[in-house]
Design a binder for these strands. Structure first.
Length: 308
DNA sequence: AAGATGAGCAACCGCTCCTCA
DNA sequence: ATGAGGAGCGGTTGCTCATCT
C-alpha cells in the first residue's frame, strides 16, 4: 500500500502555467504569504494546481529577485568548484548564487556547462568515453568507504575529503554522463601509489584493472580544467573557448559572517570553509550526513593489497 | 519547404528529510 | 518514541523552438 497522494491528481491541472495562474498565485502569496502550507495553498488561492507545483512555480519564477539569463564567468566558476567538491547538491550551490534557483543551475549544468567543460578536453579524447562500472563489479580487493567510515573522530568530512591536498583527476565521463552526477578522481594517495578515490552521488567507478583510467592523458585533459593544491581549488582554463581564460587562475571564496554567503574575492576558493559550512548544522548550508553517506562513497583502490 | 534532429528549459515524479502531534 | 503528512531535493520527462539536411 503506497502513500496517499498529496493532492487529487484527477482534479489538478498539469503542464505550463498560464499568466492568469501566475498572477493568482503571486497575488495570493504577496498578500497572505505561503502560510507554511503549500498543500492547502492552491485551494485558498483558487488554483487547480498541486501544492508542490505552486511551490515550484513560486520558487523558480514568481518570487522576487529571480535572476534569469546568462550565467557569468564567476557563476560558472563557483558552480564548477562546488560541483567538484559537493556534487549535485544544487540547492546548496544555488544558495551561493543570489537570484539563481537550483533548477536553473541544474539545467544550466546539464545543458551547457558540462559541454563547456568537455570542450576543454583534447578533441581526440572526446570520442573515447569510458564505460561506467557498478561498484559491485569492483574487484574484490577494492574497498569502499563512506565519508563517515573514514572519518577521524571530531573531524569534519572536509578532513577526509581532502581533494585539495592531493592531485586529483576527474574522470570526464562522470561529468558528462547524464545518468550520474558523480565525480571521479584518480588519486595518488599520499601513502601509496595507484589509489583510486571516487566520490559523488552515485556509487560508480571505473576499474583500473580494465584500464578505464589507463589513458592517463584522458584524465590529464580534465586536469587542465580543474586542479587543486593546498586547499585551493584552481580552475584552469587551458582553452580559448568562449570567455574562459588561458591561464590558470585562482579565485578566492570567503564568507561573510553575516550573510553566510561565499563572496568571491580576488584569487582562490577556500573550499575548506564551504565544507565546514556544509558540515555544520547551522541550517543554512547543512548537508545531510546520512545522505552523504548513502550517496557519496569513497573508493580506495589499492593495487594488490586491501589492508585498509 | 518540410521533416528530422538537437538544445534548452519548465515542470513533474518520486524519494528522503523534517516536523509535530 | 513513533508515525503521518508536508517540505524540499535531485533526477527525469516532455514540450517548444532552432537548426540542420
Amino acid at each position: 500500500m503506497g502513500r496517499a497522494p498529496c493532492c487529487d491528481k484527477a482534479n489538478v491541472k498539469k503542464g505550463p502555467w498560464s499568466p492568469e495562474e501566475d498572477s493568482k498565485l503571486k497575488e495570493y502569496i504577496e498578500k497572505n504569504g505561503t502560510g507554511g502550507n503549500w498543500i492547502s495553498l492552491p485551494q485558498k488561492a483558487g488554483l487547480r494546481r498541486c501544492g508542490k507545483s505552486c511551490r515550484l512555480r513560486w520558487l523558480n519564477y514568481l518570487r522576487p529577485n529571480i535572476k534569469h539569463g546568462e550565467f557569468s564567468d564567476e557563476e560558472d566558476r563557483i558552480i564548477c568548484t562546488l560541483y567538484a567538491n559537493i556534487g549535485s547538491r544544487w540547492s546548496i550551490i544555488a544558495a551561493q548564487l543570489p537570484g539563481r534557483t537550483d533548477n536553473d543551475i541544474k539545467n544550466y549544468w546539464n545543458t551547457k556547462l558540462k559541454k563547456k567543460l568537455m570542450s576543454f578536453l583534447p578533441q581526440s579524447h572526446n570520442t573515447t568515453l569510458l564505460p561506467y562500472q557498478n561498484p559491485t563489479s569492483f574487484p574484490s580487493h577494492c574497498t569502499s568507504y563512506s565519508y563517515n567510515q573514514i572519518s577521524q573522530p571530531n573531524s569534519s568530512y572536509t578532513t577526509n575529503f581532502e581533494p585539495c591536498s592531493l592531485p586529483f583527476y576527474p574522470n570526464q565521463e562522470s561529468l558528462l554522463s547524464g545518468a550520474t552526477t558523480s565525480m571521479q578522481y584518480h588519486h595518488h594517495h599520499p601513502m601509496r601509489e595507484s589509489t583510486l578515490a571516487m566520490f559523488g552521488s552515485e556509487g560508480s567507478c571505473c576499474s583500473s584493472s580494465e584500464g578505464s583510467f589507463g589513458k592517463q592523458e584522458e584524465i590529464m585533459g580534465f586536469q587542465n580544467l580543474m586542479q587543486s593544491s593546498n586547499n585551493m581549488i584552481t580552475l584552469s582554463h587551458g582553452s580559448d573557448v568562449n570567455q574562459w581564460e588561458t591561464e590558470t587562475e585562482k579565485v578566492n571564496l570567503c564568507f561573510s559572517q553575516n550573510q553566510k554567503q561565499i563572496l568571491p574575492t580576488s584569487l582562490g576558493y577556500d573550499l575548506e570553509y564551504i565544507k565546514q559550512l556544509i558540515s555544520s548544522d547551522n541550517g543554512y548550508l547543512s548537508i545531510d550526513e546520512n545522505k552523504t553517506e548513502e550517496k557519496t562513497m569513497y573508493y580506495y583502490y589499492s593495487t594488490g593489497t586491501d589492508d585498509y
